[in-house]
């Protein structure tokens, strides 16, 4: 699977999502919103398509009516090695963090041209159309490790960069390298089906490295050439369902 991927784009941090295990329960969506201070836009705006979730569970329909089955694919920013959002940003607000090999959004630098949003094949980016209120007592659940975004800037999944940094700092303090499992993003932590695995792919013994070697591994919209760092595991052919 890695043949077409440039060496420097073999990301350190990698996420593996087992689609055959995902039940579409949306727990990851909720956990992500809590962890990352994602705004609640209200019913009307959400219905219009302005929901701000950094991860969403995409339904993929198989078959023809009425014999339909749905596959669930949780999609977030794929942390592309060749990210289409980066070159188009006029001010480097969408930029790559070299040590972590992930794409970051610099909120203070973003001027809100929204070009990156148009150019993202995964539709992973969301925009702060307004300053959204957090009615009491929701303000108490804000995560102090994550910036609260103001209106007019883009945002997206960061692979829970605050947790990555926390894991690295804790390991540093204890004078040891980061072990597999030290860093778990909110979605992976919350998933009851344990469909999401996160870790360092450069460590051949890590769980993600083992899973990435699976014959079921694929990358989403690989043909666009984005070299994403999220790997999906999907059984060949149809998902067989009973009942």
């Amino acid at each position: 699977m890695n043949e077409t991927v440039h060496d420097e784009n073999v990301g350190k941090w990698t996420m593996v999502i087992d689609l055959d295990q995902c039940t579409g329960c949306q727990a990851c969506v909720t956990a992500c919103s809590m962890e990352n201070n994602v705004a609640f836009v209200g019913e009307a705006d959400a219905a219009y398509g302005r929901g701000m979730h950094w991860i969403r569970v995409v339904r993929e329909w198989n078959g023809e009516m009425p014999d339909l089955t749905a596959d669930f694919r949780p999609v977030m920013c794929q942390q592309c090695g060749e990210a289409p959002c980066e070159p188009v940003c006029p001010v480097f607000a969408s930029t790559k963090s070299v040590p972590e090999q992930i794409n970051l959004q610099v909120y203070n630098r973003c001027i809100g041209t929204r070009y990156c949003g148009n150019n993202c094949p995964y539709i992973a980016r969301t925009f702060n159309w307004f300053d959204y209120e957090r009615p009491e007592p929701l303000n108490f659940q804000l995560n102090p490790d994550v910036t609260v975004r103001s209106r007019g800037v883009m945002e997206k999944c960061t692979f829970c960069v605050q947790r990555i940094r926390r894991g690295e700092e804790d390991a540093n303090a204890e004078g040891r390298p980061v072990h597999d499992g030290d860093v778990t993003p909110a979605c992976a932590q919350a998933c009851p089906a344990q469909a999401i695995t996160f870790g360092d792919i450069t460590d051949p013994e890590s769980r993600v490295a083992k899973l990435a070697r699976s014959a079921r591994a694929e990358r989403f919209l690989e043909e666009v050439g984005t070299e994403p760092r999220v790997i999906y595991l999907k059984g060949n052919g149809k998902v067989v369902r009973e009942g």
Partner: peptide
Amino acid sequence: MTGIGLAGVRRPVFW
């Protein structure tokens, strides 16, 4: 003063 949300743009139609 209010936000660009007064326009009709939405995900995925950012422009």
